[in-house]
Nucleic acid binder design. Sequence first.
DNA 1: AACAAGTTCAACCGCCTACCA
DNA 2: GTGGTAGGCGGTTGAACTTGT
Length: 252
Amino acid sequence: MADHLGWGIIEEEGWRKGPWTAEEDRLLIEYVRLHGEGRWNSVARLAGLKRNGKSCRLRWVNYLRPDLKRGQITPNEESIILELHARWGNRWSTIARSLPGRTDNEIKNYWRTHFKKKAIGPSDASEKTKTRLLRRQQFHQQQQKQQQQQQLQLLLQQQQQQLLLNQMDMNRIMATPLPQVIRQEMDSAVYPNTSEEESYFYSLLNSNVPEATNEDIIWDGLWMDDVHVLGNFNIAASSTAKATLHNLVPLC
DNA sequence: AACAAGTTCAACCGCCTACCA
DNA sequence: GTGGTAGGCGGTTGAACTTGT
């Protein structure tokens, strides 16, 4: 059970709660400087703080992070908050990403104190449902994305194999003496005038497919209305792949 | 000056998802 | 496949501060 010795000195299972002291802040800053962000549950052990991981993370993210912007929300920021809230609802962390230096907590508090009163009404009652629905949709989209990535990766693997085989054939052909003109023709057939999409595909073929791509960032901004974009991306990737394969076929 | 009411914001809570063994 | 754990998120709380009477 918790010992209630006053706000700030409450302890439960050895964890301190309540307002942070300057010394605790110093220890946390030092910890992050040495070990970086993350592994928050190690903070207690490594930094000598009697705070649980969640508390440490929150303190860092909302208060100690060096890139935080202090002071009043500007009118410009306010309009961004209004616009994004109209679009996303109470998805504060998503909104916060569009306002560098502002935290989700800060934006949430700002919204509640400045706009909540105006917003209370029939729409407010449905806010929770709306947020949950959005979350569920996000989850389904994530699953779809994974499936599509798997398909794309499979396709790329097949094509890389095909390319390897083609290259082996090419090597064999190139090993036999040919007139210069015919060789030039063949060179242009391997890498014809490429479109942007094809260049992108070549670059994919020539590099290992990264495990974590910028798609994560893109996906952050993709929601219901944007699903078709990913659908098109997949189609585009597939069609490009087909086109590229088609270009290679005459070589076989 | 003193008190009440209103506002702000740091911090906590509970839930959910991702990840790992 | 499953259970445990860590981290992230939105909602809520309550102490501190400000403003009005």
